[in-house]
């Protein structure tokens, strides 16, 4: 396992270097540090009178794992939904992997595909698990049925439910459904994964099985943005924790510092509420 993870990491690194080199030859003097996976500048969005996002600036490096937390209505979900274009925004700029064009509705499939996992799973109830996984690769990537099948089977194994392939989603437990949803997103071979409260709709005893899968994914070097209240999980995988309130980023820090020494009063209060109950 250790070996596989490392070789995978090496491969990712090689790919990154290659891409960086290509950029250097293209534009001249483009440094690796400058290619962020996600670059957000002055992002602002309002729902009528309510300001959901207030001039957000955020850069996410390739391979970085960012956990976003905060009280409900603080704009966490809106922020990550803006990243993959499910939500329009009023002002600001989002660049995905140095590509400054906004990821609007038309460009959902790009070189730099963004996978998403929803709180409510959003599996397709009329299709079996394996059909759920194959739909994207076959219809939008143009893979053959056979290739998609192999890919889907592999991913089902990775999320540890290969035996459920032919069942309908509602025959599975919540935890299994969410793992299928993760596999469905991975089937598109995304470079970035967004998780929108992936465990909030689950029964307590199913949370860990889903988090395990996400932790594995993190270890393999996937760039991830996770909105969650699972602080134990955040401690384990996050490179950076962001605390949002009232549509802006109030505080961001490494997990160690974030939990030990929260800087702002609001963050302290939030942590107190979430950790001691």
């Amino acid at each position: 396992m250790q070996l596989r993870t490392r070789s995978c990491f090496k491969y990712c690194h090689a790919v990154k270097l290659k891409r960086a080199k290509r950029k250097i030859s293209h534009r001249g003097g483009y440094k690796l540090e400058n290619t962020f996976a996600v670059e957000i500048q002055g992002l602002t969005k309002s729902f009528k009178d309510f300001k959901a996002l207030d001039t957000i600036d955020l850069n996410i490096k390739h391979g970085e794992k960012v956990v976003i937390c905060g009280p409900s209505g603080s704009g966490k979900s809106t922020l990550i939904r803006c990243i993959n274009g499910l939500e329009d925004f009023d002002e600001g700029k989002i660049s995905i992997s140095g590509n400054s064009q906004n990821p609007t509705k038309e460009s959902f499939v790009s070189d730099f595909h963004i996978g998403m996992v929803f709180q409510q799973f959003n599996l397709f109830p009329h299709l079996s698990v394996i059909e759920n996984l194959k739909l994207g690769p076959v219809k939008s990537l143009g893979l053959s049925e056979k290739d998609a099948e192999t890919r889907a089977r592999k991913l089902l194994e990775r999320v540890k439910i290969p035996e459920q392939a032919l069942k309908k989603p509602n025959q599975l437990s919540g935890g299994q459904q969410q793992r299928v949803a993760i596999a469905r997103a991975l089937c598109m071979e995304p470079k970035l994964m967004l998780f929108d409260e992936p465990t909030s709709a689950l029964d307590p005893e199913m949370i860990s099985e889903v988090l395990e899968v996400i932790v594995d994914l993190a270890r393999e070097g996937m760039t991830m943005v996770v909105v969650t209240h699972e602080m134990g999980f955040a401690k384990k995988v996050a490179d950076r924790i962001i605390f949002m309130d009232g549509g802006s980023i109030v505080e961001q820090n490494s997990p160690g510092m974030f939990f030990k020494k929260p800087q702002t009063a609001r963050c302290k209060k939030f942590l107190k509420q979430i950790l001691h109950h």
Partner: peptide, 26 residues
């Protein structure tokens, strides 16, 4: 539910494909 359309978008289906394979069958 709107989540179905959104899920279809995130796996890269276009409008026609979303209607044909996700929404209409349901």
């Amino acid at each position: 539910s709107k989540g179905q359309t959104e899920a279809a978008k995130t796996i890269g289906l276009n409008y026609y494909q979303t209607m044909r394979y996700v929404i209409m069958p349901q």
